[in-house]
Amino acid sequence: MARFHKLELNARNRPPPEPNEPDPLSRDAGYWMNKADESRRAGLYESALKYYSRALELDRSLAAGWAGQVQMLLQLEEYPEAELWSRKGLELFPTNGELMAGRAQAFCRMGDMKQAHALCDGSLQQAGQSAYRWLVRGEIMAASRQDMDRYCFDKAQELDADWLVPLEVARIELYYRKPSRALGRIRRALEIAPESPFAWYVQGICQSELGLTRAARQSFQRCLELSPRHAGAEEQMRRLQGWSWSPMKILRRLFRR
């Protein structure tokens, strides 16, 4: 009988699908792309990467899926892998501006500014416009210590009113140790999407970087109210409540980019 135990004969015993969940057989690439987008908005980049891969398993011609994978690898701080993957994506879609911008961002994070500039220029020359390309442009400006970065980030926000854009700008500003600017951006994101736990979490991070411990605690608290199992916020709350001195923490702080 072992040969037949996987046959779907007793369909009546199968649990009914959730109301919003489509039938597993009808889950297409779009479904997985939506799931990836949801995860991305929740700050679950590892899950988002998996969902993008699932979408690409169903439709390899989905350029947005390849670009999404590159962006998730960048968010997960896997820059050489992101560069490699964007190169692979560009072999399939040689004129894709998003993939070019992703590769430029990877080069920028790895410190190769010459390549980053060239690829960013290339991405902006491609047809169409997107917030991500301007976001990368702004990041390259920020990495080159040029004050023009804010205009590029503003341009990105003009092109796309989505709250994800200011949130990702804030994360970039945080990466380059500009928490006060990041706080301004994340506040804009929260004006648009006050129900997003991840935005509250990022605001808490900005505030704790600025030493606004009380405000940071409130932000993390709000994040936990919206998403009670938010591991990052829980950890930050623990850190804020039981602040302790340790040489490892000091070393990490010294060597942190």
Partner: peptide, 17 residues
């Protein structure tokens, strides 16, 4: 419903980690 244009190529869609 997967695209057959790219499906013809043996492409790995899982990025290196």
């Amino acid at each position: 419903g997967a695209s057959l244009q790219l499906a013809l190529l043996a492409i790995d869609v899982h990025p290196p980690r």
